[in-house]
Amino acid sequence: MTSIHTFEPEVGATLPPPAIDPISRTTLALFAGASGDHNPIHVDLDVARGAGLDDVFAHGMLSMAYLGRLLTDAVPQDAIRSYRVRFAAITPVHGRPTCTGTVTAIDDVDGERRATVELAVALDDGTVTLLGDAVLAID
């Protein structure tokens, strides 16, 4: 399988993280349109403040999409056997998410080598916003 980045599938290997700009209001508006998630708490400051927040925050699925890019930068999309996450905290507007993926196991399943990857998204202050894992078919 061809990868965009050099990814050496061995236990302890890390997937190269994608470059992600800080979350802007424009990013949130564009993602709302692209995803169909028009919940106003993500784009309307008055709604966010009415809910007791200081500002709007990113859609959880936006961070999940960034993790998806981490995976598809490492392997083709059809090599993803499973992908799951748990939302742990919100990503505030202007937050800068960093995606990480670390290989925790390599197994042979029905003649196919597979890597289990531990996933996370964290902000510059160390707040972890998403945790998850994926199983990838590897050469």
Rank of each mutant, 00 (worst) to 15 (best):
S3Q: 14
I4T: 14
F7V: 03
P9W: 10
E10K: 15
E10L: 14
V11Y: 04
G12V: 07
A13L: 08
A13E: 00
L15M: 11
A19N: 10
I20E: 06
P22R: 12
I23Q: 08
S24Y: 05
S24T: 15
R25V: 03
R25D: 11
T26F: 13
T27G: 02
L28T: 10
A29Q: 15
L30K: 14
A34I: 14
S35Q: 02
S35E: 12
G36I: 10
D37Y: 06
N39P: 07
P40F: 13
I41E: 06
I41A: 02
H42A: 03
D44S: 08
D46R: 15
V47Q: 05
A48D: 03
A48Y: 12
R49H: 04
G50V: 01
G50Y: 09
A51I: 04
G52R: 07
G52V: 11
D54N: 09
D54I: 09
D55R: 06
H59L: 08
G60I: 01
G60N: 08
M61Q: 03
M61P: 09
M61F: 14
M61W: 05
L62V: 06
S63N: 13
M64E: 13
A65C: 01
L67M: 11
L70F: 04
L70P: 09
T72L: 06
T72Q: 05
T72I: 05
D73R: 13
Q77K: 06
Q77W: 09
D78S: 02
A79Y: 10
I80T: 00
I80D: 01
I80G: 02
S82N: 08
Y83V: 00
R84P: 03
R84N: 07
R84K: 01
V85R: 02
F87Y: 12
A88E: 13
A88M: 13
